[in-house]
Nucleic acid binder design. Structure first.
Length: 881
RNA sequence: GCGGACGUGGCGGAAUGGUAGACGCAAGGGACUUAAAAUCCCUUGGAGGAAACUCCGUCCGGGUUCGAGUCCCGGCGUCCGCACCA
C-alpha cells in the first residue's frame, strides 16, 4: 500500500534532537513520574544503584539506568504504583583529591558534578521521581545517619576497638576487609599496610549466622552473589580445645593453651602447636627469650603489606613450651610461634596435623617434625600409605588413632568432641563446640574530611560521650584546607574543640568520619519518605514500600554494599526504624560495557571517537580519522580511561539520541553478560528507530474504522496474531528481564507489519485497516519502555491525544495465539524427515494415523510396521523404524 | 589451592529434553539514482549437486533417551570470585 497522499505532512526523518527534549518537558509538565505515598495501587519499587557524582555519566550508567527504566515504565503501565527514585552517593575521596589538585572545595566540586550528571540523566529520558532526590553529603541526609549511629550505639551494635587495621598509605585512611582487593586499596590501588588503631566498628559479625541463613530466602538473587556472600561469611564448625601446658616449660603462670580446630578427628596425627606472633602466650614467652622477641619483630616487619603476607614463606620459632596431648598425658607437643597463624581467627592458636593439612605439612617438612597419617584414603594399604609433599584432606578411614581406628571422619569428629566435652579441668570442660566465621566486624572509621562525622565526643574525664540527639547534625566545617595530607578535621583550629556534654569540661570531637559505605547502606529506605525532617524513616511508609522489588547494579557490589545493606536493615529493625530484614527482594547484576581497543604505531591508545573503521570483505581496518594513520585493532576490553576505549554518552545522545543508546544497550547481549559497544551496532539501532517511525507513519495514514469490525478475514487476522504474539512474548521476557529477547520480538513484529503493508492492496478493507491500527497501537506501547521518546512521537502520529507514558499495557487476546491447525515436524529415527499438518487438538492416534500415510514415512518403513511411534502433542512426532 | 560460571555460524546471540542457528551486526549480489547517501529486494553454518535433495555440524571422549546444544560421567579451554580462615 502506498500512502503518498499524506506523506508530505511528515518530515523525511525522525529527529530525536528536536523530539526528545520536547517529550521530556511534556512528562515533566504533567509530573507523571512523581509517585505519591498514598497511591492505592499495588506497589513496585525498582531501583538502580545510585551513582557517585564523579562529574560525568559513563556507558555503564547508561546500561544500568536503561534497564531500570524499562522495568519502571513497564510496571507503571501494568498498573503498579511505581517508586523509581534517584540520588547521589556523594561523600568520598575523589572530592578531596579534587580539592587538593584544583583548589576547589569538596562541597562545590560535588554539587557542580551532581548538577552536570543530573542534566545528563534527564537527557536519557528516565522515568524518575526527582522530587525524592537525596545526596548523602547533605546534612538533611546525614543527620539521620548520625542519629542511627547513636541508636546503634545504644543497642550495642557499635563498638570502639583498638585493632589491627588495613591502612591505605595513599589515601591515608583505614579500609575494611571488604575494601582490600588483592592486597590493595579498592580505590587507590596502593599496597595496604597493617596498623594498630582505635576504630569504630559495626557489629556485623553478631548477624553472621542470620545473614548466612537468610541467603536461602533470597530466591530472586543471582546464585553467584549468594555464593560469594556465603563464602565471605565463611562459617565453619569446629571444636575449641584447651591443651594443658607443661608447667616446667611455661614462661609464667600460663597453664593452658586454647585452640580452634575443624578437624578434631586428626588429633592423633598432631605434631606441634602453633601460635600467632600476636598471641599473648607468644608475647609472654618473648619477654624471657630475646631470640623469640626478635623473631616476632621480624614477623611484624615482613608482614606490613597484605601482599607480603600472601607470598611469605612458612616460618616458625620453637618457644620451648610443651603442650600435653588431651588424650595422653605422657605425649607432649612443641609449641611454636608461626607467621601464618592469624590472631583474629579462632583463638590465634592451632594444633598442627601435617598429614592432612598442607600448611602444616609445609611447616614440618621445613623444621623436620615428621608426620603420621591418621586418615586412610579408600583403597589404600595402611602398611604402605605415606604422606610426603602433599597432605591428604579427603574422605577415608581413621588409622593410627587408637580408639578412633576404623571410624569415618565424621564419626571420629563426633567421638572426640563427646569425650573432651565430658572431661573437665578446673571446673570447665576441656573442649566445647564452636562455630567460627570469617566475617569480621565492619570498621567504619575513616581519617577523612568528606564523610559523615561520627557524632561522639572524647572527654578526659567521662570517656566517650555521644553527642546529644538535640545537637544533631554534627555538620562539617566549611573552612578547611588541604595543604597537607591526612585528615583536615584533625588539624582544624576550632571545630574539634568542644565542651563535654556530660561534665562541661574541655573535650575533643571525634575527627574520624564514617566509611561512605554507611551512606549507601540505607539510602533506598530514605527514598520512601525523604521529606521526614524528624527521623530517618517514617516506619509506616518505609514498611509499605520496602523491600526493593528489583534492584539493579554491578556485580562489583556483590559483597561490599549488598552485605552491608543487609546488615544495616537489620540494625534499623532492631532500633525501630523499619520492620524488615531483607532490603532487596530481587537483585539483578548487569554485565559491563566493553569496547574494542585501538593502538597507534607509537604504542599510544586511540579513542573510538578518533578512529574510522573500514570493512574490506571480512577484514576490518582502523585508521585515525584526522591523519589517516593506520591503528591496530586490539582486544575487546572493559571501557577504561587507561585503555582510552571509552565512549562518551553525551556524544552518542547528540548524534543518535537517547532512544538509540537505550535500544542498543538492550539489544545485543543478555543483560547479565558484557555488551560490546560498537559503532555498527549503534547505527543498526538508529536505522531501526527510523524504520519504526516510517512504519508507524504508514499505519497512521491508513483510514481505519473507529468501531471494531464484527469479523476479521485472513490478512487482518495474520496482523492481529503477529501483534498479540509479540505482546505475549515481550510481556513474558520483560518480566524475566530478558531485554535482548524483547528486542528480537519487537523486530519480528515490525518485520511482519512491514511485509504485510508492502504486499497489501492500495485501499485496505475495513477489517484489515482496523487490525493495522490495533497492531500499531500495540507495537508502540511495547517499545515504549525501551524507547519512550520515539514511542510518544509515534503515539501522537497515530492520532492519540494522551501521553503513551501514562497508557496502560495492551490487553492480550490470548485466543489469537491458539492455532486451529498446527504443523508438526515428523522425525524418522530421530531425524527430521517430513511435516504433518493436523488439528491442534488432534489425539495421539489421529496424529499417528496421519503420519503413517506420509510418503517419507512409508518409504522408510518399507512395508513393515514401525517399532514405535512417539507423539508429543503439539510438539513433534518420532517414528522409530 | 578452594569455589563458581561458561564453551553454538565471520561476530553478538536464539533454542520448557522435541524442526539448531530466532533477532541483530558484518559480508556478497541486485533495484532505485547522473552519482552518492538513504531506502527496498535476494543470498549467507560446512561439503556435495544443475536441481530436487543428501550428508556432516553446538569444545573433545563416553553414557542415558524414541530423541541431547540442553541431562549424567571423564577430559580440554576461557572467564570470575576467594585465598595462610586452622
Amino acid at each position: 500500500m502506498t500512502a503518498e497522499s499524506s506523506k508530505s505532512a511528515r518530515p523525511e526523518r525522525y529527529n530525536p534532537r528536536e523530539a526528545e527534549p520536547r517529550w521530556q518537558q511534556a512528562w515533566d509538565a504533567r509530573g507523571i513520574f512523581a509517585t505519591q505515598n498514598d497511591d492505592p495501587r499495588p506497589k513496585y519499587y525498582v531501583l538502580e544503584m545510585f551513582p557517585y557524582p564523579s562529574g560525568r555519566i559513563h556507558m555503564g550508567h547508561v546500561r544500568n539506568y536503561t534497564m531500570g527504566d524499562v522495568v519502571a515504565r513497564y510496571k507503571r503501565a501494568a498498573g503498579h504504583a511505581v517508586l523509581h527514585p534517584m540520588g547521589w552517593d556523594a561523600f568520598g575521596m575523589p572530592a578531596e583529591n579534587a580539592a587538593m589538585a584544583q583548589k576547589v572545595h569538596p562541597k562545590e566540586w560535588t554539587y557542580s558534578n551532581i548538577a552536570a550528571m543530573k542534566k545528563q540523566l534527564q537527557s536519557m529520558g528516565l522515568s524518575l521521581d526527582w522530587a525524592r532526590e537525596v545526596a548523602t553529603c547533605d546534612p538533611a541526609y546525614y543527620r539521620h545517619q548520625q542519629k542511627m549511629f547513636l541508636d546503634f550505639l545504644g543497642a550495642g551494635l557499635v563498638a570502639r576497638e583498638y585493632r589491627k587495621v588495613n591502612w591505605d598509605p595513599v589515601d591515608q585512611t583505614v579500609l575494611a576487609n571488604e575494601q582490600v582487593i588483592d592486597g590493595r586499596g579498592w580505590r587507590s590501588g596502593a599496597l595496604v599496610e597493617q596498623r594498630d588503631l582505635h576504630q569504630w566498628v559495626f557489629k556485623i559479625s553478631d548477624y553472621a549466622e542470620e545473614l548466612l541463613e537468610a541467603l536461602d530466602t533470597l530466591d530472586r538473587w543471582p546464585e553467584k552473589v549468594r555464593l560469594m556472600q556465603k563464602n565471605w561469611i565463611g562459617r565453619s564448625e569446629g571444636l575449641l580445645i584447651r591443651f594443658a601446658l607443661d608447667p616446667k616449660t611455661t614462661p609464667g603462670s600460663e597453664n593452658e593453651l586454647e585452640i580452634f580446630t575443624t578437624r578434631p578427628d586428626t588429633l592423633f596425627g598432631a605434631k606441634f602447636m602453633a601460635l600467632s606472633p600476636d598471641h599473648p602466650l607468644a608475647t609472654a614467652a618473648a619477654k624471657k627469650n630475646p631470640e623469640l622477641a626478635a623473631f616476632i619483630e621480624r614477623c611484624h616487619h615482613m608482614g606490613t603489606s597484605q601482599e607480603a603476607i600472601d607470598t611469605a614463606e612458612k616460618m616458625g620459632f620453637d618457644t620451648g613450651i610443651k603442650a600435653v596431648h588431651p588424650f595422653d598425658s605422657s605425649w607432649t607437643l612443641p609449641v611454636h610461634v608461626a607467621n601464618f597463624i592469624l590472631m583474629d581467627y579462632g583463638t590465634g592458636a592451632i594444633f598442627g596435623c601435617p598429614a592432612h593439612d598442607q600448611r602444616d605439612l609445609d611447616f614440618v617438612n621445613k623444621y623436620g617434625l615428621g608426620n603420621t597419617p591418621v586418615v586412610l584414603p579408600p583403597g589404600q594399604d595402611p602398611a604402605s600409605f605415606v604422606i610426603t609433599d602433599t597432605a591428604y584432606d579427603g574422605e577415608g578411614t581413621m588409622i593410627n588413632s587408637r580408639f578412633l581406628d576404623g571410624m569415618k571422619i565424621e564419626g571420629a569428629k563426633e567421638d572426640v568432641a563427646r569425650r573432651l566435652e565430658k572431661e573437665s579441668r578446673g571446673n570447665r570442660p576441656v573442649a566445647q563446640r564452636q562455630v567460627n566465621y570469617r566475617l569480621r566486624d565492619w570498621g567504619i572509621s575513616r581519617q577523612r574530611y568528606w564523610g559523615c562525622p561520627i557524632p561522639v565526643i572524647h572527654c578526659e574525664k567521662c570517656g566517650v560521650v555521644p553527642v546529644p540527639a538535640a545537637e544533631l547534625p554534627v555538620t562539617l566545617p566549611d573552612d578547611i584546607n588541604f595543604d597537607k595530607p591526612g585528615n583536615p578535621l584533625d588539624r582544624h583550629p576550632t571545630w574539634k574543640h568542644v565542651k563535654c556534654p556530660k561534665c562541661g569540661g574541655e573535650a575533643r570531637r571525634e575527627t574520624d568520619t564514617m566509611d561512605t559505605f554507611v551512606d549507601s547502606s540505607w539510602y533506598f529506605i530514605r527514598f520512601t519518605d525523604p521529606w521526614n525532617a524528624e527521623a530517618p524513616t517514617t516506619p509506616k511508609i518505609a514498611n509499605a514500600w520496602m523491600p526493593v522489588d528489583q534492584y539493579i547494579g554491578g556485580i562489583e557490589h556483590a559483597i561490599l554494599h549488598l552485605l552491608y545493606s543487609r546488615f544495616f536493615t537489620r540494625a534499623m529493625k532492631k532500633t525501630g526504624h523499619i520492620d524488615l530484614d531483607e532490603p532487596f527482594a530481587g537483585l539483578f547484576t548487569q554485565g559491563m560495557v566493553v569496547h574494542e581497543t585501538y593502538r597507534k604505531k607509537n604504542g599510544e591508545w586511540a579513542m573510538p571517537a578518533e578512529v574510522t573503521i573500514v570493512s574490506e570483505g571480512d577484514n576490518r581496518k582502523a585508521t585515525l580519522t584526522a591523519t589517516g594513520e593506520p591503528v591496530e585493532i586490539g582486544p575487546i576490553e572493559k571501557m577504561s580511561k587507561s585503555r582510552r576505549n571509552t565512549v562518551d554518552p553525551d556524544d552518542i545522545m547528540d548524534s543518535y539520541g537517547a532512544d538509540v543508546a537505550r535500544w542498543f544497550m538492550l539489544s545485543d547481549s543478555p543483560p547479565d553478560r558484557d555488551v560490546i559497544w560498537s559503532e555498527e551496532g549503534v547505527q543498526g539501532a538508529s536505522r531501526f528507530v527510523q524504520r519504526l517511525w516510517r512504519l508507524l507513519g504508514e499505519i497512521a495514514d491508513v483510514q481505519a474504522p473507529v468501531a471494531r469490525p464484527a469479523q476479521f478475514f485472513d490478512q487482518a487476522t495474520a496482523v492481529r496474531k503477529a501483534a498479540h504474539r509479540a505482546l505475549a512474548n515481550v510481556t513474558d521476557d520483560i518480566n524475566k528481564l530478558r531485554f535482548n529477547r524483547c528486542v528480537a520480538h519487537i523486530y519480528g513484529c515490525a518485520n511482519t507489519l512491514s511485509d504485510v503493508i508492502g504486499a497489501a492492496e492500495t485501499s485496505p478493507s475495513p477489517d484489515f485497516a482496523w487490525a493495522l491500527r490495533e497492531a500499531g497501537d500495540i507495537l508502540v506501547r511495547l517499545f515504549n519502555p525501551m524507547m519512550p521518546h520515539l514511542a510518544e512521537e509515534c503515539w501522537a502520529a497515530l492520532g492519540h491525544k494522551t501521553l503513551v507514558a501514562g497508557e496502560a499495557w495492551p490487553q492480550l487476546e490470548s485466543d489469537l495465539l491458539v492455532e486451529t491447525t498446527i504443523t508438526l515436524p515428523v522425525q524418522i529415527n530421530g531425524r527430521k524427515r517430513a511435516e504433518v499438518t493436523v488439528a491442534r487438538d488432534a489425539g495421539k492416534d489421529a496424529v499417528e494415523a496421519a503420519v503413517l500415510t506420509l510418503d517419507e514415512v512409508k518409504k522408510a518403513l518399507d512395508g513393515k510396521s514401525p517399532k514405535k511411534v512417539i507423539v508429543v502433542p503439539q510438539r513433534i512426532v518420532n517414528v522409530v523404524a
